[in-house]
Simulated assay, not measured.
Amino acid sequence: MAVFDSVGIPFAADIMNLVILTALLSVGNSGLCSRMLWSLSQNGMAPSVFGKLNSRGVPFNAVLFSLLFSLVSLLTSVVSAETIFVVLLSVNGLAGTISWMTIALSQYNFRGQFIKTGGDVKELKYKVPLFPLIPILCLVLCGISILFMAFDPAQRSSLVVGLGFMGAYYLY
Rank of each mutant, 00 (worst) to 15 (best):
V7Y: 07
G8P: 03
G8M: 07
A12G: 09
D14L: 01
I15P: 00
M16Y: 10
L18T: 15
L18P: 00
I20G: 01
L21S: 11
L21A: 14
A23M: 13
L24R: 07
L25R: 05
L25W: 09
V27I: 15
S30A: 14
C33S: 12
M36A: 11
S39P: 03
L40Q: 05
L40P: 03
Q42M: 05
Q42H: 05
N43V: 06
N43S: 13
M45W: 10
P47K: 08
V49P: 03
N54P: 07
R56C: 09
P59E: 02
F60V: 14
F60R: 11
A62S: 04
L68V: 13
F69G: 01
F69N: 06
S70W: 03
L71W: 05
V72E: 10
V78H: 05
S80M: 12
S80T: 11
E82S: 15
E82L: 10
L89V: 13
S90I: 05
S90N: 06
S90C: 09
N92F: 11
G93Q: 06
G96R: 04
T97Q: 03
W100D: 08
S106A: 14
Q107I: 15
N109V: 13
R111I: 12
R111P: 00
F114A: 00
I115N: 04
I115G: 04
T117H: 05
T117C: 06
G118P: 02
G118K: 06
D120I: 09
V121H: 00
V121E: 08
V121G: 00
K122H: 07
K122W: 00
K122T: 11
L124D: 08
K125I: 14
Y126Q: 05
K127D: 09
L130Q: 11
I134M: 13
P135D: 01
I136N: 01
L139D: 02
L139I: 12
G143T: 08
I144H: 01
I144F: 08
I144D: 01
I146D: 01
L147R: 09
A150N: 04
P153Y: 08
Q155V: 04
S157G: 07
S158E: 01
L159A: 03
V160D: 04
V161C: 06
G162F: 02
L163R: 01
G164M: 07
G164P: 04
F165I: 15
M166H: 11
M166P: 02
M166L: 15
Y169F: 14
L171M: 13
